[in-house]
Amino acid sequence: MAVTVMPYSLPDAGLFAGKGDGLLIWQPESTVIVLGQSNTPEKSLILPEVERDNIPVTKRPTGGEAVILTPAMAVITVAMKFSTIFPSKEFFGEINGVIIRILSDLGVNNLGLKGISDITIGHKKILGSSMHRRENRLVYHAVLNTGEDPDIFEKYLRHPSREPEYRQNRKHGEFVTSLEREGFQIEFGDLVSKLKSRLTED
């Protein structure tokens, strides 16, 4: 049985398809695998495991590598129009900087920006982000691992074909961590309210 890549219909699909500004912070209701734009199930996934556990697979409009979304994660999607051309990394730095400040306010420490668009605790990744730009509008998409066991990545995802330098060929389980695993318990409601207020204000 081959894995079928479903059309992208997650809660933030409207932001990708829309034309205006928008912000959505949400928690997936169930586990789903989301491929990056140029990923294929064969190259990115451990298919027997995905098939056996019947994990749905979809493909987002943004770049980057495949991710798994579970109810123990928070997804942040920001759509905005822009009038001037600026480097993508600059935007990643801006918005991820805001997220770092919020997480710091909530008591998380040892946070850093690594790679092109990752947020880390020490040398481990807790948030990955990607972007879709079309004409004068962009959609930023980030996944924050609040409490998922990183071993789940090991189970379903192959080692990515591209990796940031700081990953240093580490396996998913050694490269990714969660806020909970690092000893930080954060209420989703607190995160949402702070993100909403700060992102709309910044």
Binding site: G36, Q37, S38, P61, T62, G63, G64, S88, F92, I116, S117, S129, S130, M131, H132, R133, R134, E135, R162
Partner: peptide, 18 residues
């Protein structure tokens, strides 16, 4: 001028090149 020519993907970004 500004019309999208091609959609390209880099490590983290999918973007139209105008």
């Amino acid at each position: 001028v500004g019309q999208p020519l091609v959609k390209m993907e880099t490590d983290k970004v999918v973007t139209d090149i105008p």
